[in-house]
Write a protein that binds this DNA or RNA. Structure first.
Lengths: 338, 338
DNA sequence: CTGAAAGCGCTAACAG
DNA sequence: CTGTTAGCGCTTTCAG
């Protein structure tokens, strides 16, 4: 690596002081003539200001940490994409952690070592102690998508309770009766809220979810969705309607129905959650709940940038509404009641 | 934000010089007694060394840039995942760019501004001039997955020519005759190599690809795969065998066949490329070519770290072998000839 | 408006 | 082994 050219080199080359070079760089007022000389020198020597020095001086790295959960679920790349785009657009860089374990600690370390200006956490659980510590120390952290009650930081998510309630409502209004759910004992608040939103709506409308119609899986994947659904379809009185707490499970469910010879939607309605891209594919044509990811990302980042810039108001908590996307895996009938 | 504690604070608190604190931090030899005092002070004041200062002093940020193509294709999150994991594992941080446009420029800027120690580029095309400039200036850059002939930097990819040749071979050895291909005029070297590997193998075995059996699409997505395949199946003499130059196209193709009432593999064989997770799903059960992503990531990162550490040997270029994964979308017969 | 000068927090060479 | 002393490259007072 060749010794790199510094602002002092530029200064000498342009016959001005080093401070003037810095002024040109930061856009402070400088006489046109000198400014031009400096710019010419910069171009000629192919000068680029050293980012780490600048970061140190201004205590701003321009980096934003981004913690996303396992990328196997296509929702997460989608979320990553909108957030990373927003971050890049805003003139920052996205430092991404997605390796299941060490990442939360790595992210917490990075804020505390001033290697990132703030962190957007999309995988928070109440077990995220490292980051909680950082939050308590007033580091700029916002929780996006998955939230944790009681953390003193900004939180942005969609309204999973209402979204899942909407599904329950849709089922009952459409006269579905043998309703079941595939979910799990998840660390993720979004999953838990979907489950409670669904079962509470059913209960409140007088048709509580039956125990035997509730399958809980450990891991949320295509194959666990497939297997759980296979078990339900093998019951003496199989369900006629299935809610999966995310799309990946639902796609597995759809294939289990296919494999068992159950017609969809004739014998079985299936609804997922997230509206990942595959949900719209012909093979699945899955009714699902779409979250407003772009808005979530935008608001989350806006909150974070405000914090980075010193805003110190009370923690804010935002819930954005979801949207039911009707497709061929259900009867496509429109919801009747409110 | 409270004024943060520095190594000088620790020094005062422990009654030693600031240099000694630094030594404890970097692991230089220090008398046990002083070392303990320093460590106690660090713990007590919850001190964390300032990463930007350290970065400036050592001209090492510990950040590695990672440019990945549009995350809509599930291969790319998979690649991102293995690379980001490897980077985190190695004690570095991954700065990710995935927003289609500005990212290559942003990555090039970041190396030149010493905001990252090096860049792993998985989306290089011959149009990537910004990064090419950085490479010419000897910045640590390695090209992974997509490569560009003639760039003076390390390159790691799988052997797409041989991989696609293997598919052609498999088709002909299995007696398939009405062979077609869905590909495109792509910027991506991997796609181009797959296409030429496929058609050259067909030609060399005396059954060149017919023009009418070659569909080229602009964008590589489920829906373009669907549509291109629909066109092929609507021909007076539809093909009996289809190679798609990536899995996303092939999944669209599979659904086009389903929708048109073509049985797979009875009426139509389909083969994709990449072995993305969906390929193994029941609905698709797609024969495809798997690349050794973990090895690609590992070698790519190893090369980059060597360069970062000053290795200045000739550019290296590695091609790893691919692997045909036989599933239900083809006759599952094993390849006969070599 | 411009130059001189003072550091940001850390590492490392230099004397003890 | 330890303390003292220079900076890394930049931004930002402070005088002029």
């Amino acid at each position: 690596m060749a010794k790199s050219v510094t602002s002092l080199d530029i200064a000498r080359h342009a016959g001005v002081s080093q401070a003037t070079v810095s002024r040109v760089l930061t856009g402070s007022p400088v006489r046109q003539e000198l400014c031009d000389k400096v710019k010419a020198a910069i171009k000629e020597l192919k000068y680029r200001p050293n980012g780490t020095a600048r970061a140190m001086r201004s205590s701003r790295t321009g980096n934003i940490g981004l913690v996303v959960p396992r990328l196997q679920n296509p929702l997460h790349p989608a979320l990553l994409h909108v957030l990373a785009s927003a971050i890049t657009q805003a003139g920052y860089r996205a430092v991404v952690w997605s390796t299941d374990d060490m990442d939360e600690k790595a992210a917490a370390d990075a804020v505390r070592e001033s290697l990132v200006d703030g962190v957007i956490m999309t995988a928070a659980t109440s077990a995220s102690i490292q980051l909680y510590e950082a939050v308590r120390l007033n580091a700029p952290v916002v929780l996006v998508n998955r939230v944790v009650e009681g953390w003193p930081c900004d939180q942005v998510a969609s309204d999973h309770v209402a979204g899942a309630g909407m599904v329950a409502d849709y089922f009952l209004s459409s006269g579905r009766r043998r309703v079941c759910m595939v979910g799990g004992i998840s660390q993720s608040s979004s999953i838990r809220q979907r489950q409670s939103g669904f079962s509470e709506m059913l209960a409140s409308r007088g048709r509580p979810l039956e125990k035997r119609y509730c399958e809980l899986v450990e891991l949320f994947s295509y194959s666990t969705g497939f297997e759980a659904t296979a078990r339900l379809l093998d019951l003496a009185e199989p369900p006629d309607t299935l809610f999966c707490t995310n799309d990946i499970l639902a796609l597995g469910a759809r294939d289990a129905a296919r494999q068992r010879g159950f017609g969809v939607p004739d014998d079985l309605w299936i609804v997922g959650y997230d509206d990942i891209e595959m949900a719209s594919w012909h093979a699945f044509d899955l009714t699902t709940v779409r979250q407003p990811l772009p808005e979530i990302a935008e608001i989350g980042l806006a909150f974070l940038l405000e914090r980075i810039n010193g805003y110190a108001g009370e923690p804010r908590s935002i819930r954005l509404p979801n949207h039911l996307v009707l497709r061929g895996s259900t009867g496509r009938r429109l919801k009747v009641s409110s």
